[in-house]
């Protein structure tokens, strides 16, 4: 039973990270209908930025709390800037082009960013400083749920609540929903669509960066390659929940995280990624609209 609970919590932790990244995919897809292949790389850049900042600050002897805040802030700011720039350079000129062109451009961007980090930093695994301390009050439960799990779950919940509020109640959120429904119509009623799209990339990237920092400090090491696998898995989560749907991305993230956790716990840990990929293939084949997505009739 304890093993089950341990797996359950580790699944929830994974799932919440997938959900954070999947939100970026789903928001971008909902608005411009593009699979932002470089999103996994943004997550990786967020993790690397927080790694660099946190290590520098800890070398110069800053207190732990300020390190956490500053590293998280830096990760979010820089990742958001990367997201903004990528959209402007690689996607905006192709908005009227065939889908295939935009997708290939996204793949190119992903390869570029991966190798940029590889050349700028290093190809080895880097030890990530431990940012989340072990809380005393968690002591009695420590054998099946760690302090960092709790922090990750809490932060994810907070970020998601914030996002929901933003989209439901703010002016910009309204504009985003309008653009997602019908871009041309939104333009006609005076919404600055370009700004909305940029903002979507900025928000999605910042969320991915927070996820990157949390999971990197949880696992304790990072590498330039982490974005690829995480990106595909988060995409799986987004598709699982129904791409374009925000609650769907969260649900998909948790389902995928739990599936993976139980599968590796009870079946075999060698095939961890195979489970995720098989799940993706199966969903796309049998229920392409996802769990919460709407089936859309194709217009001719």
């Amino acid at each position: 039973m304890e093993y089950f609970i341990e797996l359950f919590f580790s699944g929830l932790t994974r799932g919440s990270i997938y959900a954070l990244i999947a939100l970026g995919y789903t928001m971008v897809y909902g608005i411009i209908g593009l699979i932002n292949f470089a999103h996994g790389e943004i997550y990786m850049i967020g993790a690397f930025t927080s790694f660099v900042v946190a290590t520098v600050l800890s070398i110069y002897g800053f207190p732990l709390l300020s390190i956490i805040v500053l590293a998280g802030l830096a990760a979010a700011v820089w990742s958001a800037s990367y997201g903004y720039t990528i959209e402007k350079i690689a996607y905006r000129p192709l908005r009227q082009a065939p889908r295939l062109s935009a997708l290939i451009s996204a793949i190119g961007m992903s390869i570029f960013l991966q190798n940029y980090v590889l050349l700028a930093q290093s190809s080895d695994f880097q030890p990530f400083p431990e940012l989340i301390p072990d809380f005393d009050f968690m002591e009695p439960y420590a054998h099946f749920v760690g302090s960092s799990d709790v922090v990750i779950l809490f932060t994810t919940a907070l970020a998601m609540a914030g996002l929901t509020l933003l989209i439901k109640f703010s002016r910009m959120g309204k504009a985003m929903r309008a653009t997602a429904q019908d871009r041309t119509m939104a333009m006609l009623v005076g919404i600055d669509v370009n700004r909305v799209i940029s903002l979507t990339f900025v928000i999605g990237s910042a969320l991915a960066a927070i996820g990157g920092m949390l999971i990197a400090s949880h696992i304790g090491q990072i590498n330039f390659f982490i974005g690829f696998i995480a990106g595909i898995k988060a995409f799986t989560a987004a598709v699982l929940g129904g791409i374009g749907s925000i609650p769907g991305a969260v649900l998909g993230g948790f389902v995928l995280g739990l599936t993976e956790s139980f599968a590796t716990g009870y079946v075999s840990s060698d095939y961890e990624d195979v489970f995720a990929f098989s799940l993706l293939v199966l969903i796309l084949i049998f229920k392409p609209a996802g769990l919460l997505g709407r089936e859309e009739a194709e217009k001719v």
Partner: peptide, 24 residues
């Protein structure tokens, strides 16, 4: 299985398929 899928979904499924083969 991927006959019914549209362009970008197809790309992801084939990518997943390629990774599955490699991982196996």
């Amino acid at each position: 299985p991927v006959l019914r899928l549209r362009g970008d979904y197809l790309a992801i499924v084939t990518l997943g398929f390629g990774e599955i083969i490699r991982l196996i």
